[in-house]
Design a protein around this nucleic acid. Structure first.
Length: 564
RNA sequence: UGGGGCGUAGCCAAGUGGUAAGGCACCGGGUUUUGAUCCCGGCAUUCGCAGGUUCGAAUCCUUCCGCCCCAGCCA
């Protein structure tokens, strides 16, 4: 599959326009972008937007995109996350080649740069407590006050900073601050902390350091060290850009990347923050980070979303600065579009209702040829066993159907897909419950394969499986995790209030074609007339498949019913 | 009430002074052995509001309104 699909004729987004200009004017001869996750959690669909942007630009320009872990806070970060992030990015279809970096690789250089800052009189060691620093910072409307330690001599700062590094001071007792402007209307410029003492071992550097650089200081320098041309981040960093530029200007780095901010992804009927996702996992509301209802990359993968569908989705929604809410339907459509092209068709009965063909010979089995994809004959055909006892979908029969119901009912005839036309004869009910137990039909032997040699029309075609040959298996029907478009909308209502109690429905008496016994976990198929399903990669066993519903097919019948 | 951003259809989104692309949703119709797919048609006299400049404004200017972000030794 061409990973640059659909990127051609579209108008350029504002970032790609800037890049095109930079290339045209000769400011740059190529691009170097980067995806800089912090290894403190799992990637989700929002990260996919950034991944597709950064790696997409790289692909379009035949240039590198760096994978860089922003690992400057060892108290929150773990190598397990590093592994899962790399796996997810690869699964999405992107390749950073040799360009794997860690901000922690730059700790020595970052330290030297900090020393340089001190020598230039642009940084100082501050002994204020955290609380005092906050007080001195002022408020959004009032300027801050200068720290009493602000005017220490370079020599003293150098000595103190060295001793911070040596571990002579307690955590929290001192920090290194950039000396900028305590009266700046931008609070990020009011002498931001750039180094803090953290007596914690780091997942990569172990106990080599007990001081760690802060994001604002680290990120711009990491970008500069790597020769990044365009440093793309989300809107909330807009206010940090002056600091990004300040550090690089003061230090006169040979490379000064341009930071450009774009709006993060918001999707309806879900939540995107790491913190809230964590609450769902820890609170047992879902079954883990890879729960198929979650929009983590691992959840989407387990659900059965294809990488191409996620890339297409990211491509579709565009890049801009407007904070927008993308309808979940767009994501669902993106998988439908992809799977419609690629998924083989099979038949599966979710809620079986037994059908007995009265005039079909006892013990006879016929093989019916079925297409694996009606629009793509090159995908071949398969044989379906047909016999006297079948299962059809319970919802495909109605005792007293409305006129527009095109399926089976008293007096009606339907086509069994790829098999025969059958006509209703009678039904048997459970005396006690009133539930329909089985229905009896006759078939027309002249309609083998579902054809009508006499040219008669039947409105409905339904799916079926042979009772004796079908495989019984569980199917998990997933639905949206939340009942409302924006579970976060009200400040004083817990988002978990809006959890959809029916987001997962397990059916364990489903009947599917025997061919599915041999398919690999992870395989995606379309159950005709129902939706796209994926063999669960963890719970499926040989001859005992477990299916996850990825997404339903569009269904104009439910729409029709809703009109009443 | 400080600073930084953003307002084009129900939801996204092009548009960069020359008369509102496209997608989703929705509404019609056609094809169909999946009520799927596919195909055709409809869907903003108007771009947050009000003024101004101009032959001409979503695009330029001014005022106002609304929404988002920022006061971690998180990223």
């Amino acid at each position: 599959m061409d990973i640059q699909e659909n990127t051609q004729e579209k108008p350029l987004d504002f970032i790609r326009q800037i890049i095109a200009d930079d290339l045209r004017t000769g400011k740059h001869t190529g691009t170097v972008t980067r995806f800089p996750p912090e290894p403190n959690g799992f990637l989700h669909i929002g990260h996919a937007k950034s991944i597709c942007l950064n790696f997409g630009i790289a692909l379009e320009n035949n240039c590198p995109c760096h994978m860089r872990f922003d690992d400057t806070n060892p108290s929150k970060e773990e190598s397990a996350y590093v592994e899962s992030i790399m796996r997810d990015v690869k699964w999405l279809g992107f390749d950073w080649g040799k360009n794997l970096y860690y901000a922690s690789d730059y700790f020595d250089q970052l330290y030297e740069y900090a020393v340089r800052l001190i020598q230039l009189g642009k940084a100082y060691v501050c002994d204020l407590t955290g609380e005092q620093i906050r007080e001195y910072r002022g408020t959004l409307t009032e300027p801050g006050r200068e720290s009493p330690y602000r005017n220490r001599e370079a020599a003293e700062n150098l000595d103190l900073f060295q001793r911070m590094r040596n571990g002579e001071f307690e955590e929290g007792s001192r920090v290194l601050r950039a000396k900028i402007d305590m009266a700046s209307p931008n609070v990020n410029m009011r002498d931001p902390v750039i180094y803090r003492i953290l007596k914690v071992s780091h997942h990569r550097t172990g106990d080599k350091w007990c001081i760690y650089p802060m994001y604002d200081y680290t990120h711009c320098l990491s970008d500069a060290i790597e020769g990044i041309t365009h440093s793309l981040c989300t809107l909330e960093f807009e206010d940090h850009r002056p600091l990004y530029d300040w550090v690089l200007d003061i230090l006169k780095t040979p490379c000064h990347p341009r930071q450009i901010e774009f709006a993060r992804l918001n999707l309806t009927y879900t939540i995107m923050s790491k913190r809230k996702i964590l609450q769902l996992v820890n609170g047992g509301h879902v079954q883990g980070w890879d729960d198929p209802r979650m929009l983590t990359i691992s959840g989407l993968r387990r659900r059965g979303y294809s990488p191409a569908s996620i890339r297409n989705f990211c491509n579709l929604i565009g890049i801009g600065k407007k904070e927008s809410w993308i309808d979940m339907g767009i994501l669902e459509n993106a998988v439908r579009d992809d799977l419609n092209e690629t998924a083989p068709r099979v038949m599966g009965v979710l809620e079986p209702l037994k059908v007995i063909i009265d005039n079909y010979p006892e013990g006879q089995v016929e093989e019916m040829e079925a297409q694996n994809h009606p629009q793509r004959p090159e995908m071949g055909t398969r044989m379906l066993p047909f016999a006297k006892e079948l299962f059809i979908e319970r919802s495909d029969f109605m005792e007293d159907p409305p006129k527009k119901f095109f399926r089976l009912g008293p007096g009606r005839e339907v086509r069994l897909r790829y098999a025969y036309l059958i006509r209703f004869v009678s039904l048997v009910k459970n005396e006690a419950t009133g539930e329909i137990q089985e229905i009896h039909c006759t078939y027309d032997p002249a309609t083998k394969g579902g054809t009508t040699p006499d040219g008669r029309k039947v409105k409905g075609t339904i799916h079926w499986v042979s009772a004796a040959h079908a495989l019984t298996c569980p199917v998990r029907l997933y639905d949206r995790l939340f009942l409302v478009a924006n579970p976060d909308a009200e400040k004083d209502v817990d988002f978990k209030t809006y959890l959809n109690p029916d987001s997962m429905q397990i059916l364990d008496n489903c009947r599917v074609e025997p061919i599915l016994a041999d398919m690999e976990p992870g395989t995606r198929v379309q159950f005709e007339r129902q939706g796209y399903f994926c063999l669960d990669q963890i719970d499926s066993q040989k001859s005992r498949p477990v299916f996850n519903r990825i997404v339903t097919l569009r269904d104009s019948w439910v729409k029709e019913q809703a009109k009443e």
